[in-house]
Design a binder for these strands. Structure first.
Lengths: 193, 193
DNA sequence: CGTGTTGGTCAACGCTTGTTGGCAACCGTA
DNA sequence: TACGGTTGCCAACAAGCGTTGACCAACACG
């Protein structure tokens, strides 16, 4: 089907530009949120004309959708040893947040845009709740357990990566795992209090 | 000094209007965030002309500052019995969030505006850290303990009142206290893991 | 070589925003 | 009754936004 590589769009001469736009968009959305991240500013960062953004991504919403796409990949996570899931999950989320600034962007935008909020909610629905059902007792409690885990993880992300409270930024990785790991572990596996 | 009541501004004929503006502003800021809550929309809700907003609150930033002012009142909180602080704190925060929509507004705006973010951070600095110092062991760990408590409480607020995840909204009050109470208790009083 | 396609710029559009100043109506006081 | 201050509305401003279409330059292919 394709001469060079399998399963990808034909290479276009404009690919570097497209990538530059996406990179600039991610950075701006993560730093400023949706409204304050203007197409003009993004174009300036990418060193091209604002109209190019429209040509390649139709409109601002399309640009945001293209710039922010994330899969936390929870289904592939090892759930054994079972008494370590809490710590495993916390570590997993920490690397995820530190490697993808899109997550910060998604959260900044989600605070005011229901569509973006739902993108985050989808992770809870499609990955965290099933995981809670698989791993914990009382499957009918999976919703509640997953909600608590989400609030724990997103709370840390909020204070550390979005609001950037010094006291939260100062925590180091293993310190966080030591404190939050048992919390998540309890939310997932302990009997309903 | 004043004929009617002590320690307050002279009653102005415009007070009802001022109050209507503030109420509308709180509602809009809480629902839409800073940029999407336009002065025109707020004025429309308050059934007055947009220029009145400027007359009474100088500019949009001044309006926001006047509309959102909160004191969580942690210093006055009973810390006894000590093994109940966790649950007491969680209950306190829950009523706080349910009674003041300003808190939702502050968080929506804080997601993109550093000044608003700092207003939330001030609570952590001035009330939560001192409380952690008073109540927990190893005073030099107070920063970390308080940061963890803040992330717990704000995480719940985020998923429940800002992002409005159904699974988080569905939790009921005492269920939350039962799950989060022990978490806060541990963050505040347990020895460093 | 000519010709269609692609990558990119420029200038402008229509609209909304925060903000301003002028002007009319009302009030309490003298 | 006259009058200064308050309360309110109206119309307009400048600036910034997302978005559009005309136009030029470079390339690919016959």
């Amino acid at each position: 089907m394709n001469g060079t590589t399998e399963n990808q769009q034909a290479a276009r001469r404009s690919d570097p530009t497209r990538a530059a736009i996406l990179a600039a968009a991610r950075e701006r959305f993560a730093a400023d949120g949706y409204e304050k991240a203007t197409i003009r500013a993004i174009a300036r960062d990418a060193k091209i004309d604002p109209s190019m953004v429209m040509r390649y991504y139709v409109n601002k919403a399309g640009l945001f959708a293209a710039a922010v796409a994330i899969d936390p990949g929870l289904p592939g996570l090892p759930v054994e040893p079972r008494e370590e899931i809490g710590r495993t999950l916390v570590r997993h989320f920490l690397t995820l947040w530190e490697e993808n600034e899109e997550l910060t962007a998604l959260m900044r935008v989600g605070a005011t845009d229901p569509a973006a909020a739902d993108r985050i909610g989808a992770v809870l629905r499609e990955q965290l709740i099933p995981l809670a059902r698989r791993v914990g007792p009382e499957p009918e409690q999976a919703q509640a357990r997953a909600a608590l885990c989400a609030s724990t993880v997103l709370g840390l992300a909020l204070t550390r990566y979005v609001l950037r409270f010094p006291a939260s930024v100062a925590l180091d990785r293993e310190e966080i795992v030591d404190w939050l790991g048992p919390t998540i572990q309890r939310y997932l596996t302990a009997p309903t209090p």
